[in-house]
Design a protein around this nucleic acid. Structure first.
Length: 479
DNA sequence: TGAAATGTTGGGGCG
DNA sequence: ACGCCCCAACATTTC
């Protein structure tokens, strides 16, 4: 007697380990039909951008392979999620659909509609945790309010105790019936002409295996000393797990468990582990904010910023995007982003501060560029972080905290390794001029083979002027 | 998960 | 020996 099949609807949980929805589906006893739906319309403005689509392609390919090893085929469908799921469930006679909860506003809305439709058809949608350590509606202040400040949120989270990750199901009974699937290649998620993904291929291995390779590498290497080294963009001082976490190729519970276990054994310094885990908690905080304040990606969290006098000189924005601002640390970051689909977090703060404060460009412009170019583009992290830097967010950096791009370069890239890698045209400058080429004498510039304004731009805006202008603009909305 | 201006302190050069 | 000044070095405050 065969049970009716169950559908596992994959959505940014591209893994088999620690997947409560998948485990529950397997436990239900019904043969499993794995489904992914590409539904750009449902995501609206937040359909994946270019770099993210490249990642998505390879992530789905890897998930498909992982499932195939268990005898399960991943069915790919493109179109409206609701009708796709409802019709597939009808075609194969599935009574239950399992999924992990998602927390983007559009994804939550979609979940509700799918639930309503299945319910109407006499079927069920069962939703599970897995994307976050804690569902955003479970951690609240004593007053029952959402947290608006990070440190109490972090204290509450750390105190909470984290969920033990679940093992991947040992054996999965696969649905053997007919269910047509698109061909991944036909989705055209990969760039063709021009193929700009060379740097991405060199840098990343999307998929669950790649995610764990990254985690292991981090645990054996950079996590010891993380507290200091994470600020140096010229070395591999961070985990680089962000794109894997975004697509759910590894869960935050798995990361948390692995890091805290090593710290408990004394294999890695307690403080380094704690600082790293607090970064995982920043991700949780971002989702918490997005969940409780769904307009976070489009509107300033602090209402006063509604009146801020932004401007947007298209030429300057273009120089920022292309890494031609004349400030080496800024340009290095923007070029790393373009080439690899990722940017070191220290430098993200510097380039974001430069765009919003030196150029007075609305943070949403930067948010949109990051959305298109980051392989880890994540609505919650991206929105919360841009607002944090711009000063308009919850528990944000004070607006008057304006990074000096020269000092940031000197402080965090002291040997110039990062700038020389990404801005090779000024690599010949000595260390003490590298972060401020315009201060070099004619002789020094000549010896380095640099003609300012030709080989490398003059600064598009003078720091002192820009700082004063930004402070004056802020003064107008204060209070 | 700042920078810059301003204030304070203390060592050393010097008359 | 002493006061005076300079100026790092550090601390505080302001933006």
């Amino acid at each position: 007697m065969s049970q009716s099949p169950v559908i596992v609807w994959f959505r940014n949980d591209h893994r088999l380990g620690d997947h409560p929805a998948l485990c529950a589906a397997v436990r239900s006893g019904g043969p499993v039909l794995a489904l992914y739906v590409l539904d750009d319309a449902a995501a609206g403005d937040w359909a994946p951008g270019g770099a993210s689509r490249w990642w998505l392609h390879h992530s789905l390919a890897a998930l498909g392979d992982n499932l195939a090893e268990r005898g399960v085929r991943l069915v790919l469908r493109r179109g409206a999620t609701v009708s796709t799921i409802a019709e597939l469930a009808g075609d194969v006679g599935a009574e239950v659909v399992f999924c992990s909860r998602s927390f983007e506003p559009w994804a939550r809305a979609l979940e509700e509609v799918v639930h309503a439709r299945l319910d109407r058809d006499g079927r069920q949608l069962r939703r599970f945790a897995g994307t976050l350590l804690h569902d955003p509606d479970t951690l609240l202040t004593k007053a029952g309010e959402p947290y608006k400040v990070y440190s109490p949120f972090w204290r509450a989270l750390a105190k909470q105790g984290q969920r033990e990750p679940q093992a991947a199901p040992g054996k999965i009974a696969a649905f053997e019936g007919a269910a047509g699937s698109d061909d991944l290649g036909d989705w055209k998620l990969l760039p063709t002409k021009p193929d700009w993904a060379g740097g991405l291929r060199e840098t990343w291995q999307p998929g669950e295996a790649g995610a764990f390779a990254r985690l292991e590498r981090f645990l054996d290497g950079a996590v010891a000393g993380y507290r200091e080294e994470r600020n140096n963009p010229g070395i591999e001082g961070t985990s680089r797990l962000s794109p894997h976490l975004h697509r759910g190729e590894i869960s935050p519970a798995q990361v948390w468990q692995a890091v805290s276990a090593r710290a408990a054994r004394g294999d890695i310094p307690q403080k380094d582990a704690e600082v790293f885990l607090s970064e995982i908690a920043w991700r949780e905080f971002s989702y918490h904010l997005l969940y409780h304040f769904p307009s976070l990606p489009v509107a300033a969290f602090r209402p006063a910023f509604g009146a801020f006098q932004w401007q947007a000189d298209e030429l300057q924005v273009d120089a920022w995007r292309r890494g031609r601002t004349g400030y080496p640390i800024v340009d290095a970051g923007m070029r790393e982003l373009w080439h690899t689909g990722w940017m070191h977090n220290r430098v993200r703060m510097v380039v974001a501060s430069f765009l919003t404060k030196h150029l007075l460009v609305p943070w949403q412009v930067g948010e949109a560029w990051f959305w298109d170019t980051l392989v880890d583009a994540d609505l919650a992290n991206n929105a919360a972080s841009w607002q944090w830097v711009a000063g308009s967010g919850a528990d944000a950096a004070p607006y008057f905290r304006i990074f000096n791009p020269v000092l940031q370069g000197v402080k965090f890239d002291p040997d110039g390794r990062y700038v020389r890698r990404w801005v090779p045209e000024i690599a010949g400058l000595p260390d003490d001029k590298l972060h401020a080429p315009w201060t070099a004498s004619r002789e020094v510039l000549g010896k380095a083979g640099v003609e300012l304004g030709k080989d490398y731009p003059e600064p598009i805006v003078e720091h002192g002027f820009a700082r004063d202008r930004a402070l004056a603009a802020y003064e107008k909305i204060k209070g």
